[in-house]
Design a protein around this nucleic acid. Structure first.
Lengths: 219, 219
DNA sequence: CTCCTGAGTGAGTGATTACTCACTTTTTAT
DNA sequence: ATAAAAAGTGAGTAATCACTCACTCAGGAG
């Protein structure tokens, strides 16, 4: 009985992973996210993070062996959550229903989900885009999550649409690149480059979807 | 006669600006570009740059007062050259001729130019994209060059096309965002994210142009 | 109560940093 | 040929960096 209980606890720990955080630990993560986003990882000092978190510098290294480990434990859960919607049941199957707007509803779901997520996690988005280039560990996570999970699902959906003659006949990789360029280009402009403009989000989302739809429609 | 000669020389100096570089100075710039691109500005040390350039560390500071000044004198000419084609005579006027393919030829010229430029300056492209976020001085240059020069010319061209009924009726800012997202998305994927793939450049350029053209065509 | 473990601390450490400066060498002007 | 200016040098410096360590403290188990 106690064994079973422990088993459950262990299971919860491994699935929830980063729950059960000390208050100070949360303060550290919050401060680190803000400072990393503002000045970049390399220009942020652990002493500054400690100060902003109202914590002794040693406390940081009690929980994270190195500064880089702190970065990774910030970025990894973000990347995992970002990809979750792609495994939501209706993503891959949405394509099969409602033939006329198969791609459109797929895109709309995708874009609206990612929009809300980016809105609530703009600093994290910034950190990921900035630091990806320099940390092989992050590139590894990205590959794991994008190339091996998202890309294949995406490709499967595109093949279905091509068979129905709804899509231009160009390589899937090119199509995916164009979709992601448009989506990321919008999100980055909206939340990183010019977050203070007076954005009409609903309209911009519609424009972006129309652009992609017409750009990819069978001629 | 000598006065006239001096005048010409002065004129050449001010127009050519950063010519007449010492050999060592060129070595410094070359090494700095490589190291900045590889590890990022903040993680690059002046001592490492000096070593790679086969130069004493003091020599760097003889020519550039600070490390940041070195970065700026690398990035600024790049940004200036990148915008030059937008003032080439046939860019703004191209729209007026050959009504049927006004936008297409405009895009093709734009993309092919920028493609070749990015190809020859991939490390610089990387540095600009990475460091823009953290250095207000670079953001200022960008604003100067993009918002006050490129954007207006772009808008003018788009308005002409709209009058001819060739373009969707959505805000110019959105159209420009979509075009640039597609172009930059292609260049970044091609030269920064996955430069080692077997790219069929000609085809990808065509796909990208077709995508933009159909995405923006009047419905 | 005692013992133990994990959280929290902050002064201390060696390495590295951007930058300086007194000096030598090279280039240029006359 | 000579002087002045510019280019180049490398040891030296103060500041800052990520990280360590001996320690205190709180609280749960026995």
């Amino acid at each position: 009985m106690t064994d079973f209980k422990k088993m459950v606890e262990t299971l919860e720990q491994t699935t929830e992973k980063d729950r059960k955080l000390t208050p100070k630990q949360e303060q550290i993560l919050k401060a680190a996210v803000e400072i990393f986003a503002e000045k970049g990882y390399a220009s942020s000092s652990t002493s500054e993070i400690a100060a902003k978190a109202n914590v002794a510098e040693g406390t940081i290294f009690r929980h994270y062996k190195t500064k880089k480990e702190l970065l990774i434990s910030i970025v990894t859960p973000f990347m995992t959550k970002f990809t979750l919607p792609f495994f939501a049941s209706h993503f891959a199957h949405e394509v099969f229903e409602e033939p006329p707007e198969g791609l459109e509803s797929l895109l709309r779901t995708l874009l609206k989900n990612r929009f809300e997520f980016a809105k609530e996690n703009a600093p994290l988005l910034r950190i990921v885009m900035q630091e990806m280039a320099f940390h092989p560990e992050l590139q590894g996570k990205f590959q794991e999550v994008f190339l091996e999970e998202i890309f294949p699902k995406f490709e499967e959906a595109l093949n279905q649409l091509k068979e129905k003659g709804k899509l231009v006949e160009i390589p899937n990789a090119s199509i995916i690149r164009m979709i992601i360029s448009s989506v990321v280009g919008f999100l980055v402009t909206r939340f990183i480059i010019a977050p203070d403009l007076n954005w009409e989000d609903e309209k911009e989302i519609d424009y972006t979807i129309d652009f992609i739809m017409h750009g990819l429609a069978k001629k």
